[in-house]
């Protein structure tokens, strides 16, 4: 494996092997010094990519839709990358990373870089590894990064906030259109898509969502509801132009402070986790505290406070 500097140079040169390896560093060892140094090294070249988030319940056709949209987005030499997060089995912790297969043909034809992340190895750190992956792709010169997540839990919603244009995809026949809207997705959606327009009930679903939206207070950006069929191509041009319009809108209205706050939050969290790991591995004070709590000499709350004390000293560089 190459050293951090070589990896950083490779990323900046757009070398895909370096990009892929760097993402692995973030994935394998989320809270390592190496991960943070890579991200710091490439940081000056980040901030140019447009990140499109695609979320919604499983089975609505998100991956198929991405495959169908890629030819429309990868025009005029725009370089496109896809990052898709698959949920893993809660039992074995393994996962079948099935998103890729739905878009493989399109990826091959258009030379798209795609990476599948499983949410499992990343428990808690999903947002940080997604942030790191996006930064690496951004620095490597990808103009558009498409991020797919299943819109089910809080962790997925948090990941979506890394995107500048958030597309929520629903489909008829799932009976959960309104449910999904209620579950916190409403607030973050910039564009609603009803996929499977070729199926019965699609137009009703569009109308239901429009009704709900009509009662919500919206800002300057009016959230459109777009019917599409990823399988026959209907409505995809409309979706593409809505994404383009939102990209322009958000470039003018971007709330820089809120994205900076989120980014700092994730990086600080990572630094703390790194310090915690080092402390657990090598700080004799921590082993002592574990002994004390095990023997009942202290309760876990006292123990945790003492670990926090040791941590803050470590972070401050005093050891």
């Amino acid at each position: 494996m190459s050293d951090t500097e070589t990896l950083v140079r490779g990323i900046l040169d757009g070398d895909r092997i370096s990009v892929s390896r760097a993402i692995s560093v973030i994935e394998n060892d989320l809270y390592s010094d190496r991960a943070l140094r890579i991200l710091e090294g490439i940081n000056p070249r980040t901030g140019n990519a447009h990140v499109i988030g695609i979320t919604g319940p499983p089975g609505v056709g998100k991956s198929t839709l991405i495959g169908a949209m890629v030819p429309r987005i990868a025009v005029d030499d725009r370089k496109v990358a896809v990052v898709a997060i698959d949920a893993s089995s809660p039992f074995s912790k393994g996962s079948i990373l099935g998103n890729r297969i739905r878009m493989q043909e399109s990826l091959t034809r258009h030379g798209i870089f795609m990476r599948s992340l499983s949410s499992r190895g990343l428990s808690g750190g999903l947002s940080f590894s997604a942030l790191g992956t996006i930064k690496i792709l951004d620095a490597a010169g990808f103009d558009t990064i498409i991020l797919e997540t299943v819109g089910s839990g809080q962790a997925d919603l948090d990941v979506m906030l890394l995107a500048s244009t958030i597309v929520v995809v629903l489909a008829p026949g799932l009976g959960d259109e309104i449910q999904a809207i209620k579950a916190g997705i409403m607030e973050i959606a910039h564009i609603f898509v009803v996929n499977k327009l070729d199926r019965e009930g699609a137009f009703q679903a569009i109308k239901d969502i429009e009704d709900v939206l009509a009662t919500a207070s919206q800002g300057e950006w009016k959230v459109p509801v777009i019917g599409v069929s990823a399988s026959n191509g209907d409505g995809l041009d409309d979706l593409n132009s809505a994404i383009g319009k939102h990209a322009e809108y958000q470039a003018r209205h971007r709330d820089r402070r809120s994205s900076v706050r989120m980014e700092l939050n994730l990086i600080v969290e990572s630094e703390i986790m790194k310090a915690l790991r080092n402390a657990i591995e090598e700080d004799s004070r921590v082993t002592g505290i574990i002994d004390d709590v095990s023997s009942g000499a202290r309760d876990p709350f006292q123990g945790s406070r003492m670990i926090m004390g040791a941590l803050s000293q470590r972070i401050a560089g005093k050891k």
């Binding site: 393994g94 990373l97 890729r100 297969i101 493989q104 190895g121």
Partner: peptide, 16 residues
């Protein structure tokens, strides 16, 4: 195979 690998705790991709 894909399912067996997943059940063994692996992340499995299928090349299509």
């Amino acid at each position: 195979l894909a399912r067996a690998f997943r059940d063994a705790g692996m992340d499995v991709l299928y090349a299509g």
